Amino acid sequence: MTKALRMTGLAKLLGVMMLVGVPGAAIGQTPDLPKLHLKVVGSSGIPRQFELFEKPFFTKTLPERSGGKITTDFVSREELGLKGFDDMRVLRQGTLDIGTSQTLYVGGDEPFAEGVDLAGLFGDIDTAFKGHMAYKNALDERLQKKFGLKLMTLWPYPAQVIYCRPPIKTLSDLKGKKVRVFGRTLGDVVEHVGGASVTITFGEVYEALERGAADCGVTGTLSGNAERWYEVTTHLFVLPLGWSTTMHTMNLALWNRLDAKTKEFLRVQFAELEKKLWDFGRESTQDGINCNTGVGECKYGYKGKMTLVTPSAADVALRDQILRDTVIPRWLKRCGKDCAEPWNETAGKVVGIRMKAP
């Protein structure tokens, strides 16, 4: 997106005060809070999480439950033209108050963030929840120290699976294929089996698959459906490779200026949002499969006719081997020896893996 468009988006966020009208006293209000206006950028406006949870939370829930004391300007990443690590840089500068980032994108500047969503680390969402909650404090400390950001939520998209245009039956069938990935650890998996990892922005993947610039792509079961990948792919290989972990962060200087009542109010509200997003991650993983294949109830997406490919025990074993032999060693090399111990005591402990510092 052009610089002019980015400035237009920032001007919209900074210059237009979209104060949300709030009705009279309601259950759960905290009217004695001081006034606070927050400039917020949410996640991508394409996946369902944005409209179903983020937008209502920032534009309705916070204002209503605070008795009108907390108001927001809220836009999506696309409206500001933000990509990758951009929003975290803007947060550090104080231009934004709250931002939304995916840990794998942040990993380019802070590899420690990748540690909670290493490809193949958590094979199901219940284990992923335990691992994320274990890792959360360590990640928060790293973000505060290195970037001046306070971690408010840590949550998943649906399971990240493989959409392919040519037929595939196993993970090894990615050999020789061009596979769209986001984040280095997903690329590690593809390269281990002999595929070529290609980085393509989410909004451009449909066209890349359609014209053959990519043979396959990795994204969430419902996320890919929202972009209608089922129209340009034929096979859905549902081996979970990750969870596209996402976080809401707040400018730490702002957080430190808040009074105790406001901090506690925000902690409670963000914890509730986080729980809803985890619940939806669980529900939407299966819903996305149903929608893409056209089998079963499709509640949140569009019905396709993809062929469902269920991973075998051998595929699961290969994914686990790649995690130990390739993904973890490469991540630790990028992250450094100081990453090993906090990872071992949190996410690693949940899955029973202990890595050695390089």
Rank of each mutant, 00 (worst) to 15 (best):
T61V: 13
T72N: 06
F53H: 04
V41R: 11
R65P: 00
I46M: 13
V40D: 04
S43Q: 14
G42N: 12
L33M: 13
K69Y: 02
T30F: 05
L36Q: 01
R65W: 00
P31G: 09
R48C: 10
V41C: 13
F58D: 02
F50E: 10
Q49L: 13
E64N: 11
T71S: 13
T59E: 13
E51P: 02
S43Y: 03
R77W: 04
P56W: 03
E64S: 07
Q29P: 04
K35W: 06
I70H: 01
K39W: 13
I46D: 06
E78Y: 14
E78N: 06
L33D: 00
V40S: 09
H37G: 06
P31N: 12
E64I: 06
G42H: 09
S44L: 08
E54G: 06
A26V: 00
D73G: 13
V41F: 11
F53Y: 05
Q49Y: 14
G68M: 03
D32S: 10
F74M: 04
F50K: 07
F53I: 01
R48M: 08
R65Q: 08
S44V: 07
Q29N: 08
E78C: 13
D73T: 08
L38E: 12
P31V: 03
L52T: 11
D32I: 01
D73R: 11
G28F: 01
R48N: 15
P56S: 07
Q29I: 01
S44F: 11
K39E: 08
V75A: 09
Q49F: 13
I46P: 00
S44M: 12
T61Q: 11
A26E: 00
D73W: 09
G28C: 02
L52V: 15
E78Q: 12
V40P: 12
F53K: 02
